[in-house]
Design a protein around this nucleic acid. Structure first.
Lengths: 212, 212
DNA sequence: CTCTGATTTAAACATGCGTTTAAATTAAAC
DNA sequence: GTTTAATTTAAACGCATGTTTAAATCAGAG
């Protein structure tokens, strides 16, 4: 029974790498199966369709990340009223944990998330809210409690601005770090980018609503 | 000679609408030409290829927007030292002017920009910086002068965070306004979203750099 | 009117895609 | 060792895509 899970894993590993690099629709099953060194038909045999393969790739990360993010959030809420910076920062450890599961796991996950939100025309949003809605609600509630001066409708928009910042930044993180390294002669890894974006997000979410 | 420019314009009009709604690679030439009620081959005849059609669609907007945005920036710089909010807000008028050129011009342009940045794998970034670099540099310089406490490398990242926020928000603006209308019973048009995002961006760009 | 170049048209082309099929192979159960 | 089910394989299918072709049509100039 080694072969079965081996083929499935080889497909998932090759697929997530290519999906993160080039996007979903730009990655053909032929490219995935050739990189994975498995037969073309095995994707449909093991996963049913390309769509379900995409879901499986995302779910493998989300199943690891979401519960741990929830736990971290609980932890920092237990030790007093966390700031927005604290709340966003609580995601860093669960994100970096993904590197222990796979090489470049963190950046792969974030890039997949970015690609997914952008490409799937709302389907990933639905998938995440239906499968991980409880975790998400906890997070949204924590943010809202930490910025009580922002009305719900305003917070809705700001959280989506935040999602956009993260998703776009991560989907183009490779290109950006390349440019930044060339222009400023500094080294950036995914953690450095995450730590740079958090204060930006926290400031935007909490800025007082304009009264004019 | 009415026919020539007529066909070109019909193609551009149909293409920009479909590109904005569904993305570039998800929009086939057959769909474009059928909506435009022109022959399939006329795209290749008038534009050469699908890639050049995409460029033409974007350029039609950028050629209108960029000079006017530059002019507006000059104007507000002439009347004293503008704040970050002022600088970002100076883009609103040129953006809304696009509605006079075409129905839904503003949102179409912003959605195209979002799609382009996301889909084109860095190609749009190159196209814009090479064709409209002078305008862009003026804008970046104005932002930097208005937030002198932010070092250049940090500003690089924050401006790209900003780009990400705008681009993602605009690419999914239709979905977001729909959700917001359903959940909060408020009406949102593109101008309302623009005016909501500006304070968020300005706060993020200007937030003091963490010293820890 | 006639000729010439520009434009439009219908058809075909070549390619790449996701998926399906049926036979070959492998591994596990008895 | 034989049987049975799971897996792998090579091939083909059907379809959609961007592009090209060559003939038909059109508009303007002489």
């Amino acid at each position: 029974m080694a072969s079965r899970s081996d083929t499935k894993t080889r497909i998932l590993d090759a697929a997530e790498k290519l999906f993160a690099e080039r996007g979903f629709s730009e990655t053909s099953l032929r490219l995935i199966t050739s990189k994975a060194e498995v037969n073309l038909a095995s994707v449909n045999y093991h996963f049913g369709s390309k769509k379900e393969l995409i879901r499986a790739v995302l779910a493998r990360y989300l199943d690891r990340f979401m519960p741990e993010a929830s736990d971290e959030l609980m932890l920092i809420k237990a030790s007093g009223d966390p700031s927005l910076n604290d709340i966003f920062s609580s995601l860093v450890k669960p994100l970096l944990e993904l590197n222990k599961f796979k090489v470049d796991g963190t950046s792969t996950f974030l890039q997949l998330l970015g690609r997914g939100y952008i490409e799937s025309q709302g389907h990933l949003r639905w998938f995440i809210t239906t499968h991980y809605g409880e975790h998400l609600n906890k997070f949204v509630k924590a943010v809202a409690e930490s910025a009580p001066h922002i009305p719900p409708a305003e917070m809705f928009w700001r959280l989506h601005f935040t999602l956009g910042t993260v998703v776009f930044t991560m989907a183009s993180a490779d290109a950006l770090t390349e440019i930044a390294q060339a222009d400023f002669n500094e080294h950036y890894d995914i953690e450095a980018v995450i730590r740079k974006v958090i204060p930006y997000l926290a400031a935007g979410v909490a800025v007082p609503v304009s009264t004019q």
